[in-house]
Nucleic acid binder design. Structure first.
Length: 862
RNA sequence: GCGGACGUGGCGAAACCGGUAGACGCAGCGGACUUAAAAUCCGCUUCCCCUGGAGUGCGGGUUCGAGUCCCGCCGUCCGCACCA
């Protein structure tokens, strides 16, 4: 019998699936629906092993759901805007669109070769006007709904590339591409009001039962809800102001919508507002500190060179983790003092401090050195009072002699009316009193910031806004959408080609007809990926989606992707979905009912004798092929170009076929953990594919006879594999299939064996679909196995009538008994005590105690 | 610093509610077939001082019984990070 010819079979069945549109989802179907989605790829040009693993997992689930009678939506598209296309344009002189579309074509061909059960009729690319035009419409809907605003904000500016960089693109203070020192610049940026949904997004996490705890926790921390007290200290002397500092820390653009945040300096120029989560320690305060860019600091700097110099110094501080770790707490005594809200005779010094962040809370804090480590360090350095107000039970003395701050539980002391209270009670008491007396309010503060979506880039969705000298910000009218990116752009010089395009940005104001200019910023590509799963579910020409149609598919039943998207993408998509609900476009709260984050594909790393990284192809039998020198084998790490330990899937598919690659992706490692790629592993997968082929191809006509144990195993395997796939435990499903295949190979010919082979074929078909179709066709079966049902299970065959009982003496295994299931306790005990080994161990003594667990074990305590 | 996850053979890993630790795969070893090799098939494969003993990172505890539960360490990885 011949080998399984994967190359031939793969191509054949992929064509058949395509021609028959086997995996096109039917919107009109009455079957239960299952929306299975993997995170769509960025079209970099080539798929990598991570894609293969991700899409194989989704594919097995999608194919399994089809077999269990679901109408499955399993689409694929392209997250096609983004910087790499512009970089390619700059480096190779190719248009970003040309580059991107060629990459899409290449990657689509690669994906097709893996035989994924995808509905290609719904393919979309975010860089096409028929996608981003609808996104512009949604953006304007959100704008009309009050969820979009514009304000000036500080950005990372690369002065060489003349563009804004994301925080992730700033490495040690320099642009990742240009290497230029990044500047902070104030630019007018568009923001989405994700903070309006902070509480909702946080609460919603609790209902996402089918999400990994890890991701929920990460989002919870990211949203960062803190409850406490916001209150004002009255300044003891008026600020030496030159014309006033204005309302808040952030000067607002004249043409903006109202910014959501109230001015941070509270009641005006004669007070400083602070936020604290520890109002219970209010009597332990010994100073007030404001951020370097706080209005008070800025006002002071105008007339005080020393203050100005200090603020400059703060700004130079590094922002990397390591720098923050070691950076000294620095303060500048302003000479100003603030009056304690509960004691008008108590004056606290006001410092400008480098550890206070303008972005969080009110940009000002009060310091309680005894019970906050940072305040403690600061107080030690500047000789400020350290007063105990929380007792750990050891002492109540106000003099605090410990070496570090005490942040644990305890009783409030040295605090007037709070004395004797617990921390929680004291918090409540101070907030109540502040609210009654009117100097503060109980407040919730979030770490989450509004989402800045402006990017000074060409290859993105144009923000559909027109700036008119007379009318201000004017949305592009719906009938003028989409705002299409011009094709005739040049990347010869840095900066945003849209901004310097000769004609594109010049338009008549839709409102008054005067000369006006388009917004030349484009949207963050995370906007594109915040709603693509809705467009997959419904894609009419005249609107972003049909509400009823989308609601029939959504939410996504199972979403699968990398954990690197745990926060940004998944939080933005959750926000966008809730924002659409808020404006009445779609009544879905959570876009992804189930989430699974898969592990990476890893590989050994190799280094030459002189320390160069070597690719797996450069290495054979512990030596470098080119030089013959011995190599060192390094850790197993994530595949990366820099360490040269990548394996390109394409030649692997050429050599072993899609099914062997798919099988390998599912074998051995639990899907959420890393999968170490190995040559031996793919060889093993290939051998198993061939073994299956031999099993399926054997002559099995006209055999009769029973094989009850095998029949039972086939039924047990069917439930086992089903449970494993539903739980996304593909490694367990694979192990069960090996076990079943092993048993079938060993079993003599019988009718049960023939049926077991059919069962194995169906159970394995989601994983090795090409082989399964080929075997199915060869056996002369009707239609496609892709359309065949999952085997039915006879529950009676799942129970064993014989069980093996463990016989322990003092908890150690000494013997086993095979007895009928349900054998009564006393019989088990008698049988166990009659065991030769037990008799020998007991040495004639009678047991002190015997524990019997029916169908499980007998433990004899001697 | 804060938060979290994880530590089981040479390797990837299983082990349900506390009940026979190591299923399944890889690698390895022995054998069959072959002129030979590949492929395939059969068997072995946690360790040791092997009629027995030890063993799930280390040290304690609870229990008739602990990989699983509790306490304390050690280590690895991940996320956030001057968050008031």
């Amino acid at each position: 019998m011949s080998r399984f010819n994967a190359l031939k079979a793969d191509a054949h069945w992929q064509r058949v699936w395509d021609e028959r549109r086997t995996f096109a989802a039917d919107d009109a179907s009455t079957k239960p629906r299952a929306y299975v989605l993997e995170m769509f790829p960025y079209p970099s040009g080539k798929i990598h092993m991570g894609h293969v693993r991700n899409y194989t997992m989704g594919d097995v689930l999608a194919r399994y759901r089809r077999m269990t009678g679901h109408e499955v939506l399993h689409p694929m598209g392209w997250d096609a805007f983004g910087m790499p296309a512009e970089n390619a344009a700059m480096e190779k002189g190719v248009h970003p669109g040309t580059w991107t579309r060629a990459n899409i074509a290449a990657m689509k061909a690669q994906l097709k070769r893996l035989g994924f059960a995808l509905d290609w009729t719904r393919e979309l690319a975010t860089c096409e006007p028929n996608y981003y035009g609808h996104e512009q419409a949604l953006f304007l809907d959100l704008f009309a709904g009050g969820l979009v605003y514009r304000k000036e904000s500080s950005v990372n500016w690369d002065p060489v590339d003349m563009t804004v960089l994301a925080n992730e693109q700033v490495i040690d203070g320099r642009g990742w591409r240009s290497g230029a020192v990044v500047e902070k610049r104030k630019l007018s940026q568009w923001f989405l009001k994700i903070t309006d949904f902070a509480d909702e997004l946080l609460d919603g996490l609790g209902k996402l039962e089918h999400w990994p705890d890890k991701v929920r926790l990460m989002q919870e921390n990211w949203i960062g809800k803190s409850q406490g007290l916001k209150f004002s200290f009255v300044l003891s002397s008026p600020l030496p102001l030159a014309g006033g500092v204005g309302g808040g820390p952030v000067a607002t653009d004249p043409d903006t919508s109202p910014p959501p945040a109230p001015p941070a300096s509270g009641r005006g120029e004669d007070s400083v507002e602070v936020f604290t989560t520890r109002p219970d320690t209010i009597f332990g305060a010994s100073f007030v500190a404001v951020a370097a860019d706080h209005p008070i600091a800025r006002a002071l700097a105008e007339g005080n060179p020393a203050a100005a110099a200090f603020i400059e110094r703060c700004k130079q501080g590094g922002t990397t983790a390591a720098e923050l770790e070691t950076q000294e707490k620095l303060g500048f005594d302003t000479g100003l003092t603030a009056q304690h809200p509960l004691d008008s005779s108590w004056q606290l010094p006001i410092y400008i401090a480098n550890f206070v962040l303008m972005e969080y809370g009110t940009g000002a804090v009060f310091g309680v050195p005894a019970h906050d480590q940072r305040d403690f360090d600061f107080a030690r350095k500047y000789g400020l009072t350290i007063k105990r107000v929380v007792s750990d039970g050891a002492t109540d003395e106000p003099a605090f002699t410990d070496d570090e701050a005490y942040t644990g539980a305890g009783t409030i002391v040295n605090s007037h009316f709070l004395d004797g209270m617990t921390i929680e009670d004291a918090k409540r008491a101070v907030i109540d009193r502040a609210e009654v007396e009117g100097w503060g309010t109980g407040t919730t503060v979030f770490r989450l910031r509004d989402w800045g979506v402006s990017r000074q880039r060409y290859w993105g969705t144009p923000i559909p806004i027109i700036h008119c000298g007379a009318c201000g910000v004017v949305p592009v009218p719906q009938d003028q959408l989409p705002v299409i990116l011009p094709d005739d752009v040049s990347f010869a010089i840095p900066g945003n080609p849209l901004d310097r395009h000769p004609t594109w940005k010049h338009v008549a104001c839709p409102s008054c007809g005067a000369d006006a200019v388009r917004e030349t910023d484009t949207l963050d590509t995370f906007v594109d990926s915040s709603w693509y799963f809705i467009r997959f579910a419904s894609q009419p020409d005249d609107q972003p989606f049909d509400r009823a149609e989308a609601e029939r598919w959504l939410p996504v039943a199972q979403y699968i992707g990398g954990v690197e998207h745990a926060i940004l993408h998944l939080l933005y998509a959750r926000f966008w979905t809730r924002a659409l609900r808020h404006i009445g476009k779609l009544d879905i709260a959570e876009p992804f009912a189930g989430l699974f984050t898969q592990g990476m594909v890893t590989h050994e790393t190799y280094k030459s004798s002189d320390g160069r990284w070597l690719a797996p192809d450069d290495v054979r039998d512990g030596t470098e092929i080119a030089t013959g020198h011995p190599i060192t084998v390094g850790r197993v790490e994530k595949m990366s170009k820099s360490k040269k330990n990548t394996i390109d899937p394409e030649p692997i598919v050429d050599q072993y076929g899609a099914d062997a690659v798919r099988w390998f992706m599912l074998s051995d490692s639990p899907p959420e953990r890393d999968l170490p790629w190995s040559e031996a592993g793919i060889e093993g997968s290939w051998r198993f594919v061939q073994r299956l082929w031999r099993l399926f191809g054997a002559d099995i006509d006209d055999v009769t006879g029973d094989d009850l144990p095998l029949r039972k195993l086939a039924h047990r395997s069917t439930t086992g594999v089903a449970e494993a796939i539903e739980g996304l435990q593909f490694n367990k499903a694979v192990a069960l299939l090996y076990t079943l295949a092993n048993a079938i190979e060993k079993a003599p010919a019988s009718a049960d064996r023939r049926t077991a082979i059919d069962t194995l074929l169906r159970l394995a078909s989601p994983m090795v679909p090409h082989l399964a179709e080929e075997a199915w066709g060869m056996a002369g079966r009707e239609g496609l196995i892709a359309d065949a049902p999952w085997p039915t299970v006879d529950p009676a065959l799942l129970v064993d009538d014989e069980v093996t009982i463990a016989v322990q003496v003092n908890g150690k295994l000494r013997d086993t008994l095979v007895v009928a299931k349900g054998t009564p306790k006393d019989v088990l005990e008698t049988t166990a005590l009659a065991s030769d080994k037990v008799i020998r161990l007991l040495e004639g003594q009678s047991p002190r105690k015997v524990i019997v667990v029916p169908d499980r074990l007998v433990n004899i305590v001697a």
